[in-house]
Nucleic acid binder design. Structure first.
Lengths: 225, 225
DNA sequence: CGAATTATTGAGAGCAATCAACTGATGTGG
DNA sequence: CCACATCAGTTGATTGCTCTCAATAATTCG
């Protein structure tokens, strides 16, 4: 395991903390690089701490039966992973690197000690959770009532919002249709057919696994309300 | 607005707090009774504080378009309401009393002040959020991949688990098929037809709006994995 | 008692999953 | 270098589930 200190300017844990505390945590944090495709933690693993994404892209996902999976969210630089574990013994979800990803790891003991001595940090963490909860509930509603095309459209917009675009306006992270379908709660084929439709209407352009949204407005037309 | 102090033995806010702090909050809490069907807060309302259910039953729900709604969760004695609002300016969901419900209200200012001075409380609240997040993500997965019958079955089991059963083994809270469908993310008619099927197979018994689960095992057969 | 709302059931339509077939790219062994 | 196998990508056809709509029955309410 490769260890190094964090760049405190980019890390949620560091920027959230009070200055005095930052010095302490900077010295204690362990950083590791996960290769593309590598599992960071798995559903059912014993919770040992919390992760902060220093740099890279990660999918947080949970399986359903043998074949199906649902991607709960995509995470990138500055995001927190494994925080659902706080409430239980084991992680209820898995996390997989979508590209080479640098992650800071904080042990449970250290996290708890920090929360005890740093109320401001705990409060920030609380707000983060509340905001995650809002997103989760919004997504619940979408999965329940929005039809497939709308959910795929939302996934695309979310990917663009999370990972940003490069100078050619392509979404920075190349992503498989498989992952898009797993996030939208649909099948590979359905995503494929919708992509063909979107490409023909010049709403998106694809180049391998890179995607460019040409007309956000037209894409949003698939999302009623 | 009817005001009274809370029974600290049943209130999450009180039991979570350290003893010294309990005396303070007991004096400050405002309690109000909401009539069955009454809105406690509405999607879009400015966040003014957090609610604790002293006694009763509440649905937390969000709408989709004009007609459709999704019930995010059911709450009862000891649960917290409006906590999603912490992260934003307005409530992203609504809460409606399903029966006459007694609710404690804590203002934002007081909540924040409490968190600042009471790290233990903040930590308890954090754990509560983490557990809510886990539930939300589990539900996300179900809505995405489980078919309708399974989702209705889950709703029934959840209702029984949350509200308990009376001496005739009926779920304590009488609930409309409308609300069940809104929680399962389906339509009234579909719930109705499935109920007929379940009743014929003697898996459930209905009497008006009361429901009794006769065979939890058979009901679970509709929930794969 | 009549009107309006709610419950119940049936028939039909539509969306999306599943299945299957085809294409093209890459690899492998003769 | 070619024949064949394999596998991912692509597309079409079919099936089935669930929503929608509509019609009838029951109940509530004025």
């Amino acid at each position: 395991m490769q260890l190094s200190t964090c760049d405190t300017k980019r890390c949620f844990l560091c920027t959230a903390s009070i200055p005095e505390w930052r010095d302490v945590i900077t010295a204690r944090k362990e950083t590791r690089i996960y290769k593309k495709g590598e599992l960071i933690f798995t559903e059912g693993d014993k919770v040992s701490g919390i992760y902060f994404v220093y740099e890279g892209a990660v999918k947080v996902h949970t399986h359903w039966g043998e074949e199906k999976e649902l991607i709960i969210r995509f995470s990138t630089t500055g995001d927190i992973l494994g925080h659902r574990g706080i409430a239980g013994e084991v992680y209820p979800v898995s996390a997989t690197a979508l590209e080479d990803t640098k992650v800071c790891f904080i042990t449970n003991e250290f996290l708890e000690a920090t929360m005890k001595t740093n109320p401001l940090f705990t409060q920030r963490l609380l707000q983060f959770y509340a905001s995650e909860l809002q997103k989760a509930e919004r997504r619940m509603r979408n999965l329940a009532h929005m039809e497939v095309k709308g959910r795929i459209a939302e996934t695309l917009l979310e990917l663009q919002q999370i990972f940003g675009i490069n100078k050619e306006k392509y979404i920075k992270l190349p992503i498989t249709r498989q992952d898009i379908s797993a996030h939208a709660g649909t099948t590979y084929e359905t995503v494929f057919k919708f992509f063909t439709e979107l490409t023909n209407a010049n709403i998106i352009t694809t180049s391998g696994k890179s995607i460019r949204i040409n007309s956000e407005k037209k894409l949003r037309a698939y999302i009623p309300v």
